[in-house]
C-alpha cells in the first residue's frame, strides 16, 4: 500500500495505577528478503525493524521485529497508568523512514 497509515487504539483517560491495553497496527509489506520476483531476482528486504513507545519522552515499551513477522504487524501491549501525557509511537523502517503517531492520555 502506497501510504503508510499507523493506527493506535489507546484509552483517553485512565485511573491511576490502572492496567490499560494499547493496540497498534501499521500497514507494511514486511518484505522478508527471502523472496524472488517473476524474473528470479531477489526482492530486497524491507521490514519495520523496530517499534518504540515513549511516554513524555521516556521509553515505556519497545519491540525488535524480524523478517518472519507477517505483513501489517499488529502489536498490543499493556501499560500501568501512572502519568498523564503524550504517548509517542514510532515505527522504524529498513529504508530509514520513521512513522509516528501520538496519543494523549489523562491519568487521574
Amino acid at each position: 500500500m502506497a501510504k503508510i497509515r499507523p493506527r493506535v487504539k489507546a484509552p483517553k483517560k485512565a485511573a491511576m495505577g490502572e492496567i490499560i491495553e494499547i493496540k497498534t497496527l501499521i500497514n507494511h509489506a514486511m518484505e522478508s528478503g527471502q523472496r524472488k520476483d517473476s524474473s528470479g531476482n531477489p526482492i530486497p528486504r524491507r521490514i519495520i525493524n523496530r517499534f518504540d513507545v515513549a511516554l513524555n519522552g521516556r521509553q515505556v515499551f519497545s519491540v525488535d521485529l524480524f523478517p518472519s513477522i507477517s505483513a501489517n504487524p499488529y502489536v498490543a501491549f499493556f501499560l500501568k497508568a501512572e502519568e498523564s501525557g503524550d504517548l509517542t509511537f514510532t515505527w522504524h523502517d529498513d529504508d530509514g523512514s520513521v512513522y509516528e503517531e501520538t496519543k494523549s492520555i489523562e491519568v487521574a
Binding site: M1, K3, R7, L25, N27, A76
Partner: peptide, 12 residues
Amino acid sequence: DFQNPAFLWLER
C-alpha cells in the same frame, strides 16, 4: 475491527 488488517483498506 481494530485488529482486522482489512480495515486499513477500508480507510482507503
